[in-house]
Design a protein around this nucleic acid. Sequence first.
DNA 1: CGGAATCCCGGTCGATACTG
DNA 2: CAGTATCGACCGGGATTCCG
Lengths: 114, 114
Amino acid sequence: MRKQRHKIYGNCPVEAAMDIISGKWKVVLLFHIMDGTKRFNELGRLLPGLTQRMLTNQLRELEADGVIARTVYLEVPPKVEYSMTPFGMTLEPLLKALWVWSETHVKPRLTAEE
Amino acid sequence: MRKQRHKIYGNCPVEAAMDIISGKWKVVLLFHIMDGTKRFNELGRLLPGLTQRMLTNQLRELEADGVIARTVYLEVPPKVEYSMTPFGMTLEPLLKALWVWSETHVKPRLTAEE
DNA sequence: CGGAATCCCGGTCGATACTG
DNA sequence: CAGTATCGACCGGGATTCCG
């Protein structure tokens, strides 16, 4: 059983949804993986500041939620690829809405402050 | 200066956006407040399990981010109302996308599991 | 290369009690 | 009614080390 970051599911599916995408790095990871299948260290390089531990952690949770798929290639050197599942792809409109809102309403504020 | 739940802003406005709406109770609170102006204890009653401390905390952060407005009525008994700001209203499409995705893709999973 | 295991610190949050 | 104050447990997550 995976740990609940928020409260008990059941009454409100929105909370379950937030539980899936809220996580320190998940949304950004999803944007990158949605853009195309990525390898472990490839993601690590894309997210400077993200430790291996957290990268593993976040990927595992996304995998447990059925959002991404983990493919292991038994070869030397080892190779693991992460890709979106069909379920994960359904997140696209939501992530896009998030992106649009960020660009139109949040970005102007950030640049205006400095 | 308000604490950063995620990492440093700047490179990716999406992170800033997530920083605004990700919070244990924020999205649910926003749904309720967007539905109509609410009083403090009114929100408390709508969210069983949410302590006064956290309610205050989350409301203050939303206020600091300019998402909601806090109106104090100087009377006895005291009365404080929370409502959406114009900026907060721009969140509507995003919250709606979140709701739609939850209903169509998350809810079926929850009910199927039990 | 892609992790797992361990240690450990600091923030988060619940519980409880008090106030204008 | 709408908060604030204080205390303490818990755990998220960074650093480091080791493994197949």
